[in-house]
């Protein structure tokens, strides 16, 4: 059983599965909804992971997720624009604020950065419910028109494919960037900032770029989610929304494109499966344990699992000889 033979086809297999999900889901709107939400979180986790690839770990990505959601919902409902367009505006708006926040963050390291990003999510939530309550609807929230109006035939399916298309676009863009000069620069900064600087890479510029783009994609994800829900409340800035992309990315594989995808699928299946057998708090305990065990024993996430198993088997066989 050699997995390597399948490796070149994995992308295509994954794509085929993603395209066929609605077929499996026929008759189960629950499966389709869960899959659509999972796709949104894949986009969101990819955004977080892109930032992590530049060596920056954010604990407050809900700030951008929520800003994109609000910007899109408000422009769509106030100006009557189609959500398909305002989603992009949500992303741009989140990117703008993201760049401003990035300016204060790019010189900070590790847990200073973690605290500051965490803080920005709380500050933005507070602004939304106090000073900007007149625009945002405060704690009552505001309505968000449906991404695909229910008058469109097969609306939930159209919505699924639309989100899938955005995900594929995001993946292609990130792949191109990470394989090019930017990816090399990120790796250099991540490994050794002093050396990177010596070889003429300006870490601040690259970090800022990562911040802006990550915020933009997170904003798009947020906008996609709330147009699916039809309503946005300040809870989108919550800590749990900041933590999920971390859980998905880490369990899947930090710094890899496939990581957030694998992580989201694995954790979502685990999560829904544990619900199926009636567990409540134990689900969180298991997800927490999974995260801890992954960080300790599988720092490169589930995507590195096949390789690790192969290495382990080779070692066993070696011992047997």
């Amino acid at each position: 059983m050699d997995l390597d033979r399948f490796r070149p086809y994995l992308t295509w297999i994954a794509l085929a599965v993603a395209l066929l999900v609605p077929a499996f889901a026929s008759g189960s709107l629950y499966l389709l909804t869960t899959a659509s939400i999972a796709l949104v979180f894949m986009i969101y986790s990819e955004a977080w992971n892109f930032l992590a690839a530049s060596g920056q770990g954010s604990l407050g990505h809900a700030a951008f997720f929520g800003l994109g959601a609000y910007a899109s919902a408000l422009t769509a409902s106030r100006f009557g624009l189609p959500p398909v367009l305002t989603v992009l505006f949500g992303g741009l708006f989140a990117a703008g604020i993201g760049l401003l926040i990035g300016l204060t963050c790019v010189r900070l390291k590790e847990w200073f950065l973690a605290m500051v990003t965490f803080g920005f999510a709380i500050i933005i939530q507070t602004l939304m419910v106090s000073q900007f309550a007149g625009i945002s609807g405060g704690w009552d929230g505001t309505a968000a028109p449906a991404l695909v109006p229910s008058s469109v035939p097969f609306a939930p399916y159209v919505q699924y494919y639309l989100i899938l298309a955005v995900l594929i676009g995001v993946l292609l863009a990130f792949r191109a960037l990470l394989r090019g000069r930017i990816g090399l620069a990120f790796a250099a900064i991540r490994e050794n900032e002093v050396e990177a600087r010596a070889s003429g890479i300006d870490p601040v510029r690259y970090r800022l770029f990562a911040f802006g783009l990550s915020a933009c994609v997170a904003g798009i994800a947020g906008a996609l989610e709330i147009h699916q829900f039809g309503y946005v409340t300040p809870e989108v800035f919550g800590t749990d929304i900041s933590f999920w992309p971390i859980i998905y990315s880490i369990s899947g594989g930090l710094g890899t494109l496939a990581g957030p995808l694998v992580g989201t699928v694995a954790v979502t299946v685990l999560w829904e499966g544990l619900r199926g057998i009636g567990l409540t708090y134990a689900r969180f305990v298991i997800v927490g344990l999974l995260l801890i065990l992954t960080v300790i024993f599988l720092p490169n996430g589930l995507v590195s699992l096949p390789g690790r198993i192969r290495a382990w088997r080779r070692r066993r066989e070696g011992e047997g000889d």
Binding site: A266, V269, G273, G276, L290, L293, I296, L298, L305, W312
Partner: peptide
């Protein structure tokens, strides 16, 4: 062992789901 444990957890959940 831990790798197998993680894989097992995920798989079991998938089956249940």
């Amino acid at each position: 062992k831990y790798l197998i444990l993680i894989a097992g957890l995920v798989l079991a959940a998938a089956l249940v789901a």
